[in-house]
Structures are given as structure tokens and as C-alpha cells.
Nucleic acid binder design. Structure first.
Lengths: 238, 238
DNA sequence: GTATCCACTATTGTATACACGAATTACCTC
DNA sequence: GAGGTAATTCGTGTATACAATAGTGGATAC
């Protein structure tokens, strides 16, 4: 009983998505159903279903008679995403600080803090980035708001593929670690206003830094194409 | 050239979604591919594709060999959604107030204000609700953040079907209209802090009212659990 | 009367076949 | 050689055919 075989579309969806996120499939690349079908050794049907989902996520564009094209990410889009994440994480940290956290959670957070300091000292910037994501996820995950968790994790994915590559992180890492500490302290003290404010500042800072690296890497400010089906029912599209 | 025939899946998706949002298809109802296929006079293929998208939106649950089941909405979920909308609209109004708005936009907003006052006077509560949505959408749509627009419109859809039905709106409508006025004024004066604060208060207020009506209408807080509002779980009990 | 097992049915998952339109190529005209 | 037009190819959109499995109901044993 229980978990019998999952449909192919799910594993295929995940595989293609990770390939996009990890840069194994590049922006602008064309994905053909038949090609993928032979590659995954299935028929076109589950491939189509996976591609349809990827389009809804906003990663590819389905063009009739042409193929599925992996969308480019513009700096503008990155900016939009980071701003929203900033709002939602600030909200999450406020929620958590208001409610207060357990002793275990406190040690968990402080432990993270130590690890990130270690990463900084040993110049393990990849390690830092990974721990950083987990640190930030902590508050969202503790927000007791599943909708929030889903939205933020979706948004994180959108910038994930861009985060690690050659950046000026080393120049900022010490400041970030300090801010993290202030956030943790504020949460421990139930000082939700301060916690929120620190997080807002922290993420505004990160946005500036991140956009900067993006532009230095030559990414265009405007480029990405529209094409979300979501807005179909919104009465106010102009 | 340009827009040739759109794929069936799109129109089918929109139609089924509208039917769910407008309550023509009820929660818990089972949707069968073959049934829908004959109903729409197409094959199962475009139906499946539409259902897949609806599942990704979170409206239905696809169960193998069983069918697609329309999901129930719990009060908890509504609470989550409204809280997030609250954060994002507050952000949007801040952005707009910082940037400032044109003369045309000002008259547009004031015009809305008048119309809603008219709705209140003539007890046209449906009219009020519709104008209210447009009023709130204004700021998001002017935020110059497409990602934000899409997220909020998706979230609005999730509570859309629940908004209009039998409520205690009349008891609160005058207060709401006053708050709207304060928001507009703050935006005109570029007072972004005040604009944001007013919007936050406004939506917190709305959340309380809305959850209240939901629970009075017998909706469960957690699907399957007793129907009381667990204030302890509300992150914003002051 | 009740429990167990088995065959049947309903419904989705997957593969294949067909339809259609866009892009490309080949060909013809001058 | 240039320009335009018909034929071909390529790839998705849609329909249909086949496979697999969860749920159902009925027959059988006791």
C-alpha cells in the first residue's frame, strides 16, 4: 500500500528543473519533446506534462511548432524577486520573534552562526552561501504559514542558479555575519520590531550587492519575456 | 500573423478555474477527465493538461485511478493568504508612495473613493467589494514589479470565491472607507511610512473581520479539526 | 450472517497515431 | 544572382489506443 510508483512527469520535472537551476541547461536553450523523450526513454506524453509545469513556474516558454525555450533572467526580475523575498522574510522573522523560539532553536541558530563564522575564516564561500540559505529559511519555516513557505521557496529557486557564481561576497561577508547576529539577538529577546528592521536592512543590502555582481557579470537589466497564465482572471491588467 | 489559435488547454483551464472560483464547482467535487472531455467536446489530452495546471495552482488534487478532487479551503489557509497579501500590498503602497503618482492617478483614486462611498450609501455591497478589489489592485499594479503582480493576483484568486458571500461587511464598511481615504492622502503626500502603516492596519482589520465571517459560516479552521479560531496561532495578537 | 477472495470496472498513466502550421529548403523565373 | 513561390520537413497540438491499478461487488466457504 501507500506510495506506489510516482508518475514519470514528476521525476522528469524535477530533473529538468535541477538541470536548469544548476546551469546544466542554459538560458535560451531549446528543449524538444522528442529529444527529451528518447533521452528519458519515455514517450512524449510525460515530457509534455513536465514542460507544462516548468512553463507555469516561469522557467521556460512553450512556443507552438518551435519548442520550449529556457527563459533568460533579467536583472530587473532578480531585483523584483529579492525585494519580495525581503518583504516576506522580514514578515517571517517578525512572526517568529513575536511568538518566541525554544531553547533548542536558539542553540540551533547560534550553532549556525558559528559555522558561518568558520566559513568566513576559512574562506569557504560556498559553504557560507549554503549555510546562509538554511539560516534564512529557518524563520520562514518557523512562521507556521505553509503558503509563505511555498512562495518563498519558489522565489529562492528563481535566483538560486545565479547566486553562487563569481561574486564580491568576500567583501561583505563580515558585515553580513554581524547583522545575522543582531537578528538572532533580537529574536531571542522577542524584540520583533528590531528583528524585522534588521532583516529588512540586511536584505536591502544583499539586493544591492547581488544586483551589482549581476550587472558586472554582464546580465541585462531588461530582457525576460512575460507569459504567465496566472493573470488571466485579474480584472486589472493594464 | 501573430496570434493564431490558442491551445484548448488554456481556455479549458480558465473555464474550470472560473467555475471553481465562482462556486459552480464545489469543494470536494470530483472531476473526471472523460466527463470533462465530452463536456468540452475535446479529447482527454487538453483536459489533462488543464487539470495539471490547476493542481499546480493548488485548487485540485490529482489522485491516480480515482480522479481530480477539488480541494477544501481551511480558515487557516485563508489566514495565511490574507497575511501574505497584507505584507505585499503594504510593500506596494510604500513603493508607490515613495515614487509618487500622477495627477491622473490621483483623480482615478479619488473617483474610486467616491464610488465606494456611493456603494456604501446605496447599500450596494457587491459593488463595494468589486471596487475595493480594484482599489487595492491599483497599488500592486503600479508597483512596477511584475513578479509581485502575479503572486498577489494568484493569492487573490484563492480567496476570491469566499469573499462575497453573506458577511458582516455593512458593520465595517464606513471604517474601511475612512481608512482608504487616509491611505490615498498619505500616498498623495508621499508619506510612505504612513501609507504603509495605514495599509497594514487596514488589512489586519480586514483579516479579523474576514476570518470571523468564515468561522460563522461554519468553515473549519484546520480541515478536520473543530471550528474555532485558534487565536494562539494568530501571529498578530497584540 | 460474515469474512475472504477473485474477477470486474472505472479511471488515470503512458504510448502511439494523426493533424496542422511554421520554418526551411528547393526550385523556377527573370 | 535575386526574388518569389511551392514542396518538404520539423515540431507541437490533439485524438486515440493500450497498460496498469485502486476500488467495487459478488460469489463462496464456513
Amino acid at each position: 500500500m501507500g506510495s506506489t510508483k510516482r508518475p514519470y512527469r514528476e521525476t522528469i520535472y524535477k530533473e529538468i528543473l535541477t538541470d536548469i537551476l544548476e546551469g546544466k541547461i542554459n538560458e535560451g536553450e531549446k528543449l524538444l519533446e522528442l529529444e527529451l523523450a528518447t533521452q528519458f526513454n519515455v514517450s512524449r506524453t510525460p515530457i509534455r506534462e513536465a514542460l507544462l509545469q516548468l512553463e507555469k513556474d516561469g522557467y521556460i516558454l512553450l512556443k507552438k511548432n518551435i519548442g520550449a525555450i529556457v527563459k533568460k533572467t533579467s536583472a530587473k526580475q532578480i531585483q523584483e524577486v529579492i525585494e519580495i523575498i525581503g518583504q516576506l522574510e522580514s514578515f517571517a522573522v517578525e512572526v517568529v520573534a513575536r511568538r518566541g523560539i525554544s531553547k533548542e532553536d536558539i542553540t540551533y541558530l547560534l550553532d549556525f552562526q558559528l559555522r558561518m563564522e568558520g566559513n568566513a575564516k576559512s574562506k569557504d564561500y560556498n559553504g557560507y552561501v549554503n549555510n546562509n540559505i538554511l539560516f534564512h529559511s529557518f524563520f520562514v519555516n518557523k512562521s507556521d504559514n505553509k503558503t509563505l513557505i511555498d512562495i518563498v521557496s519558489g522565489l529562492r529557486n528563481k535566483i538560486y542558479r545565479l547566486i553562487s557564481e563569481g561574486s564580491t561576497l568576500p567583501l561583505h561577508i563580515d558585515k553580513y555575519i554581524e547583522t545575522h547576529k543582531r537578528i538572532i539577538d533580537a529574536v531571542i529577546e522577542n524584540n520583533y520590531k528590531s528583528a524585522r528592521m534588521e532583516m529588512e536592512i540586511h536584505l536591502k543590502d544583499f539586493k544591492t550587492f547581488f544586483l551589482d555582481t549581476m550587472l558586472k557579470r554582464g546580465i541585462k537589466y531588461l530582457d525576460g519575456e512575460p507569459a504567465y497564465l496566472n493573470r488571466a482572471l485579474d480584472p486589472f491588467v493594464d
